[in-house]
């Protein structure tokens, strides 16, 4: 069953004449653990922002649970789709608790009153993500990995069916990449969340996802399982260049990209 259906989507940035999304048709299905991969400027982030209702001005259809995305109020849509941006410092200092609690906005009044159920959910997620002890700390003072975890925690407490993630592992060391992805995997497997992440890391996509969508110059080039899509032929056709090869990761049996210097 599709939660998000995109039909014949076209989009062009007014400020960037060269960039276009061209006739994109794509379904995101309930329970997907999917990654959008492709080179810089392929249109991955833009496509995800359109799904998250953050980018307007497109033509074609974007349906959320069968209904045009633009007909939802922000509050209604927030109960279905959450969006996790790349983490950055905020201009003003908020505590980790305050940032995570913002995810409960769809269930609050405008004043932001947190009910007992809200507090219970926030505290349990903070504990599960190892942030409970740091809940009164300034979010801006967290490490990159902790910030990413806090933003995922915020999306988790939002209790939306779909989580759209913009490059969740970028700038993280290997320990935190694995930690963030393990939590993301558990959201999919244990909590039934539908995950779509934009990633520059093909190996992360191939190892953790069951579906890989390859984009090139504003179009969907390939869409299938990691075994089908992460192949030498397809990856080289999408990314171009030399100095890397796709081979099977002996630990998992999944295809990975390995650097191979031209000596």
């Amino acid at each position: 069953m599709s939660i998000i259906e995109i039909k014949n989507l076209n989009f062009e940035y007014p400020s960037n004449g060269g960039f276009k999304l061209k006739n994109v048709t794509l379904n995101i299905n309930k329970g997907d653990m999917a990654a959008l991969i492709g080179p810089n400027g392929a249109g991955k982030s833009t496509l995800v922002k359109i799904m998250a209702r953050l980018q307007k001005g497109y033509t074609g259809e974007v349906l959320i649970n069968g209904k045009e995305a633009g007909t939802y109020s922000n509050k209604e849509a927030a109960g279905i789709i959450s969006y996790i941006p790349q983490s950055d410092n905020y201009l003003f200092d908020f505590t980790v608790f305050e940032i995570v609690a913002m995810g409960r906005r769809p269930y609050m009044d405008s004043f932001g009153t947190l009910k007992a159920t809200d507090m219970k959910i926030i505290h349990s997620v903070l504990e599960a993500y190892g942030l409970y002890e740091k809940r009164h700390k300034n979010y801006n003072n967290l490490s990159g990995g902790e910030k990413r975890m806090a933003l995922i925690a915020r999306a988790f407490v939002q209790e939306a069916q779909v989580m759209l993630m913009d490059e969740p592992t970028t700038y993280l060391d290997i320990h935190h990449q694995a930690e963030v992805m393990q939590h993301t995997l558990s959201l999919n497997k244990e909590y039934g969340k539908t995950i779509l992440m934009v990633s520059h890391n093909i190996n992360i996509a191939a190892e953790y996802c069951t579906r890989v969508i390859l984009m090139k110059t504003g179009e969907i080039a390939h869409d299938g399982s990691p075994l089908e899509e992460v192949t030498n032929e397809k990856i080289k056709a999408i990314y171009g260049g030399t100095g890397y090869e796709v081979a099977v990761n002996p630990l998992t049996g999944r295809p990975n990209v390995f650097v191979k210097p031209n000596v």
Binding site: R53, L54, N74, A78, G79, I81, P85, Y90, M102, S110
Partner: peptide
């Protein structure tokens, strides 16, 4: 509270349901 969320970013505010 909605202004708090907007001060962290308009995209983030839209995605958690702020008008």
């Amino acid at each position: 509270n909605d202004l708090n969320i907007i001060s962290t970013g308009e995209e983030e505010a839209v995605s958690v349901g702020v008008n």
